[in-house]
Every structure is written in C-alpha cells, then in structure tokens.
Computed example of a mutant assay.
Amino acid sequence: MMRTEAPPLASVEGAAFAYRGRAALRGLDLTGVRGTTLALLGPNGAGKTSLIRLLAGRLRPDAGSVRVLGGDPHADRATRRKIGFVPQEIALYPRLTVTENLDVFARLAGLKRGERREAVAAAIARCALAAVAGRVVATLSGGYQRRVNIAASLLASPDLILLDEPTQGVDLDARASIHAVLAGLRAGGAGLVVSTHDFSEAERLADRVAILADGRIRLEGSLAALMRPLAAAPPEHEAVLESPPDATAEAALWRSGFSPLGTDARFWRADHGAAGGLDGAALLTALRERGVPVAEIRVRRPGLETLYRDSLAEGLGLETAA
C-alpha cells in the first residue's frame, strides 16, 4: 500500500496581496513546520502583518495560495479552528476577569459547554495565569494582558499559532514569562510564526527566520545555518555620538568605515570590523581627534541584526539556507 505524505503544517505559494492599491506581498513562498518557531523580521510595511493575517484566514490572497494542514484558512472554518491568532493589539474584554474572558473566547471558538471549563483551565495553566485568573483584565499589567491574549488563542488546541509582536511594550520580566510560554508551546509540538522587531527575541525563540522587505523574502532559512558564517567574522563597531554630526564629523565617520545605523543620526556602524582594524579604545580616540562627538564605541560579535541589515542592503539577491 502506498503511503500518503501528510501536508505541511503551513504553506504559502506565490502569495500576492495589495492593500488600498499598494502591493503588500509580491509572490511570496514560505513553509511552516510542526514543533518549530519561524520568526518574521522586516521594516514597517514589509508585509509581515499581511502575511500573518493571510495565514490566519483573515485575508485572502489576490494571487497564489495559502494552506494550513492542506486546507484554505480563509474559506474553511474547520481549518481556522486549527489556527491560533494573537494580534498585536490586546483583544480582550477589559471589564471581565481572566477566566470570564477565556470562557467568552471558548464560546466563540465553538467549544461545547462540557469542553469549555477544561479548555479554559488548560489555557490558564499553559500561560501561568492561575494567580490572576479571578482578576479583572483592566487591572492587570501589560505583560499579564499579553499572556491572556495568548491564552485566548489556545482554547481550541491549535496546531499553528501566529503571533504579531507578542512582547511589544512589556518589561524584561514579562518578556521572559512570555518567552517561556512560547517555548512550551513549541515543545508541545505546535508550529509558531512570530512577527517581531526584536533581534534578541528572534535569536532566543526561532529555529528559522524569514526577513521580508517590500513584500518579498530577502533571506530565509535555519537560524543556525544562517549564523554559522558569522562565527569567524571580525567584531563590529558601533559609534554612539553625543549629538548628530556636522558635515566635518560626518565625513570623518564615512572615511573611517562607518555608515548610519537607522534613522537616528547619533548611531553609526562599521561593518564587520571595517574601521581600520582598531580596537574600541583606539577608535574612540581617533574619531575624537577628527572632530566626531563620539560618546562611546560598542564592540560586538555580528549576529542576526547583521544578517538583517546586510539582507536589506541594495543589490542583495534572494538567499536560502537549509
């Protein structure tokens, strides 16, 4: 008897989508796998949220296909039940308790009366919410509210969990708690897709990363494989200025191998140790002698942020790492 291969957890093939006449996704291909976390990185407007909403079935692609366990999440309600969607906004009832909120979402998920109590208890346990289960949501910290937001997505025991900026605006302790929840979900066999702007978060959580820009994937693959070539790379230097540079200081930075880091004119970066081979202290002295108002030089090993910046640089083609 021939064996039939199970469909991938999620697959996106040639997906295109436009919003208000602007192309948000341009023929994008991507695959999600059980028991792994895929981090989506990219600047604002890159298409990350559109991609997550396509996977959730909230949007339908203008071209191409989106499948979750072989089904169409936009057209098939049974497929949507296999998906947990955690939006960037807190989508809770602020005047209800945690337990009451989860009971409402369990009803909306179509769970029968006999199933709801067990599902709510399981979600509270998985997200470590027992201490606040009886409290009104409006009285909770932002970190707890985000954990309740995640718990609401787990009530139907989804196979695929989609999270859009799950730790936005929370403190370090809350972030660590949310990371522990997500790691537990992955260990339990769920597939996770996490959109984030936080490189350290992506490095901590992800098995695979996909970097998007202008509706296309610029770089995608195993995080370990993508990071491997950087292990032997020389350190990077980041110059932090006391104030934006004048024309003379800016010219000196360029001549020293630095380029602007983002939109804040006080931050400059020298790619892969290109700043004349000087160590941090010598570079600080050299830049000050050239009239650059530099406050400090940060030296660090290149990491995911380096891959991100390089992948968005002009002229880089599509790449994939197994």
Score class of each variant (00 low, 15 high):
Thr196Gly: 12
Val137Ala: 07
Glu242Arg: 15
Thr31Gln: 14
Ala190Ile: 11
Leu163Ala: 08
Ala46Ile: 04
Arg218Thr: 02
Pro234Ser: 01
His179Glu: 15
Leu96Ser: 09
Ala265His: 14
Gly32Trp: 01
Gly70His: 07
Ser259Gly: 11
Ala231Gln: 11
Leu212Ile: 06
Asp72Gly: 07
Arg266Ala: 03
Arg81Asn: 06
Glu250Pro: 02
Arg22Thr: 14
Val12Pro: 00
Val209Thr: 05
Arg95Glu: 15
Ser50Pro: 06
Ala274Pro: 01
Ser157Gln: 15
Ser222Asp: 08
Leu226Arg: 02
Ala174Leu: 02
Leu54Ala: 03
Leu253Ile: 02
Thr139Asp: 10
Thr320Trp: 12
Gly35Glu: 10
Ala252Cys: 02
Ala75Val: 05
Arg53Glu: 14
Met2Ile: 13
Ala152Cys: 10
Val68Ser: 02
Gly110Pro: 04
Gly315His: 00
Leu253Gln: 02
Ile150Thr: 09
Ala46Gln: 01
Ala18Phe: 00
Asp271Gln: 08
Arg26Leu: 10
Leu312Lys: 01
Gly262Asn: 11
Thr36Tyr: 08
His272Trp: 08
Ala109Lys: 09
Pro293Phe: 00
Ile211Thr: 04
Ile161Cys: 11
Ala251Met: 02
Thr31Pro: 01
Glu250Phe: 03
Phe17Met: 14
Pro260Ile: 04
Val33Gly: 10
Glu305Pro: 01
Val294Met: 05
Arg58Gln: 12
Gly14Asp: 10
Glu220Tyr: 13
Arg77Asn: 12
Glu319Phe: 12
Glu203Asn: 04
Glu289Val: 07
Gly27Ile: 00
Arg147Asp: 00
Ser243Asp: 13
Ala295Arg: 15
Arg80Ser: 03
Ile90Glu: 01
Ala138Arg: 13
Asp171Glu: 07
Arg255Cys: 09
Leu59Ser: 05
Leu205Arg: 10
Ile217Tyr: 07
Val170Phe: 10
Leu226Glu: 02
His179Gly: 15
Leu111Cys: 10
Leu96Ala: 12
Gly47Phe: 05
Ser177Trp: 04
Arg3Pro: 07
Ser311Pro: 11
Arg117Thr: 14
Asp72Lys: 08
Thr139Asn: 05
Arg208His: 13
Glu5Ser: 13
Ala39Cys: 13
Phe199Leu: 13
Gly291Cys: 08
Glu115Gln: 15
Ala123Cys: 12
Phe258Tyr: 12
Leu253Asn: 09
Glu250Arg: 15
Glu319Pro: 00
Arg309Asp: 14
Arg147Ser: 00
Leu253Ser: 00
Ala202Val: 00
Leu185Gln: 12
Glu296Asp: 12
Ala239Met: 02
Pro158Trp: 06
Arg298Val: 11
Gly303Leu: 05
Arg26Asn: 11
Ala202Glu: 02
Leu212Lys: 00
Ala233Val: 02
Thr139Met: 03
Ala249Lys: 12
Ala18Ser: 14
Ala119Lys: 00
Ser153Met: 10
Gly262Met: 11
Arg58Glu: 13
Ala180Glu: 15
Arg22Asn: 13
